[in-house]
């Protein structure tokens, strides 16, 4: 087959025009994509209801900046938060798949750290972890874990199709209609906060093979409600707050208490702050 120079240039221009045109279409569509129905829990409701069921003003994501406070001195490791999260967000029942989980950190007399999380702590914890002698325990405490909603998130920058993104109010979401299931964000997350939904299991969008993670229960927060895990915590070890509100208790606590974030050396700038951590948490 022979091809003339004119024909070659015409074909090349046609391909370029197609690419540019598709980009323009993608930019014009909401949420930056073609065929994008943003994940079920990611769509702010313009006329939403608050926790009491009453209506509230339309949600403005630019008027908020969400943060989370975990008080490890209060957590009793009951697992209610894990159960509530699984129910609320259709998280698979199998133990390895969690949006939130609880770890028990045991520091022994010799300084060694033993971390346990049987089934993500959903059914609570045994009095003493397997393999640890009670007399050797010098310190023990629970550490609730969830997505850190990093301000400098590795997961958003590595996604090859921009399926994971940060909302204006600081929450990182996954467009499950766009996710290709490559798992790059799963291995990029320093906190192990992501998983790929197994087949035959439920997920917020009912799509297996895509990534799922904690969203601070965005569908609830944008309707004036608190996240499910915060709602059910019997000891208020978990709190969500708005950093744009100077009087918010969480904002005050982050400013005035000595809170820490996990793995600060990575520069991810988490929005989840911890109170009372006694050892470095991986």
């Amino acid at each position: 087959m022979t091809i003339s120079r004119r024909r070659f240039i015409e074909s090349g221009l046609a391909v370029c025009a197609g690419l540019v045109g598709s980009q323009a279409v993608a930019a014009l569509l909401p949420s930056g994509g073609v065929g994008t129905a943003v994940a079920g829990d990611a769509t702010p409701s313009p006329a939403s209801t608050d926790a009491t069921g009453g209506t509230s003003a339309p949600y403005d994501p630019n008027a908020h900046s969400w943060a989370f406070l975990v008080d490890t001195t209060r957590c009793i490791g009951c697992g209610n938060c894990v159960k509530a999260c699984k129910r609320e967000n259709h998280v698979p029942e199998k133990p390895p798949y969690n949006r939130t989980w609880v770890e028990l950190h045991v520091v022994e007399d010799d300084g060694s750290l033993v971390i346990t999380s049987p089934d993500g702590g959903i059914e609570g914890f045994p009095p003493v972890p397997v393999g640890v002698e009670p007399q050797d325990v010098s310190l023990a405490y629970f550490v609730p874990r969830l997505c850190m909603q990093c301000q400098n998130a590795p997961c958003t920058s590595v996604c090859p199709v921009s399926a994971t993104y940060t909302t204006p109010d600081g929450v990182i979401l996954v467009d499950q209609d766009r996710c290709i299931g490559c798992g790059y964000c799963v291995v990029a997350c320093p906190y192990g906060a992501r998983y790929i939904v197994p087949s035959g299991e439920s997920s917020p969008m009912g799509i297996p093979g895509v990534v799922d993670k904690c969203t601070f229960c965005y569908h609830r927060v944008t309707r004036g409600m608190r996240p499910a895990c915060v709602e059910v915590c019997p000891v208020q070890a978990r709190q969500i707050g708005d950093l744009d509100d100077p009087a918010d208790p969480v904002t005050v606590a982050i400013k005035e208490k000595r809170t820490v974030v996990l793995k600060p050396e990575l520069g991810t700038k988490p929005r989840v702050h911890y109170v009372g951590l006694e050892s470095e948490v991986g």
Binding site: L19, S22, Q23, V25, A26, G32, G33, V34, S157, C159, P160, V161, S162, A163, R178, C179, I180, G181, C182, I196, P208, G209, V210
Partner: peptide, 16 residues
């Protein structure tokens, strides 16, 4: 990949 076809479209329509 769980959705390779999405990659083909996504890499063009929503490049990163």
């Amino acid at each position: 990949l769980h959705y390779p076809v999405r990659l083909a479209f996504g890499a063009v329509l929503s490049p990163s």
